[in-house]
């Protein structure tokens, strides 16, 4: 008999298709997991409403759980508990850093001023002598920055 704990452990294997070091659990988009007689029902919520990776994630969740022996998997997308960047786990934040992406500052989910995007610590050298180049980046969830010490650009997972 499958348990919720077991399902969550398997979901660790499912990664964000745009950031393949980050599991969906650490990303914080899994809202609920219900298991009933090996039938699984999961509610997820996107990081950005227009996230094009959503359908891929939904399919990856299904494939992974079916492979491990779930009898059926239903994935519902809703906004009952909307995602904020504060839902990234500590392990997820560290994985972002290792990947070369600066994690978002905490507690800044309703950005008041672009100032919060200035002086983001560089994921390579840790320097805060950095500047915002563009609040929009290569994916909806990333902004572009420049490190004055590395003399190189880097990206940040945006606070939202």
């Amino acid at each position: 008999m499958l348990t919720q704990k077991q399902i969550l452990a398997w979901l660790e294997e499912v990664k964000d298709p745009e950031i393949p070091v980050l599991s969906l659990v650490d990303l914080g988009i899994i809202n609920t997991v219900e298991v009933n007689d090996n039938q699984v029902k999961i509610e997820i919520t996107p990081t950005f409403v227009g996230c094009p990776a959503l359908e891929v994630m939904r399919q990856d969740i299904k494939d992974t759980l079916l492979k491990h022996g779930a009898r059926s998997v239903e994935v519902e997308v809703n906004y009952k508990q909307p995602w904020t960047s504060d839902r990234l786990s500590e392990r997820g934040r560290e994985a972002l850093r290792q990947f070369g992406l600066a994690p978002p500052p905490k507690g800044k989910v309703l950005v008041e001023d672009l100032e919060v995007l200035e002086n983001v610590p560089c994921p390579r050298c840790g320097s805060t002598r950095t500047g915002l180049k563009n609040p929009f980046g290569p994916t909806l969830c990333r902004s572009i920055h420049y490190c004055m010490d590395c003399r190189e650009a880097f990206e940040q997972f945006k606070p939202v």
Partner: peptide, 23 residues
């Protein structure tokens, strides 16, 4: 409520749009 919930999310995303315009 489904609209209220979605709007919380959209509101946060739109912050980047207005900050961009204002700048």
């Amino acid at each position: 409520s489904p609209l209220a919930e979605l709007s919380i999310k959209i509101r946060a995303e739109l912050r980047y749009h207005t900050l961009h315009a204002n700048t």
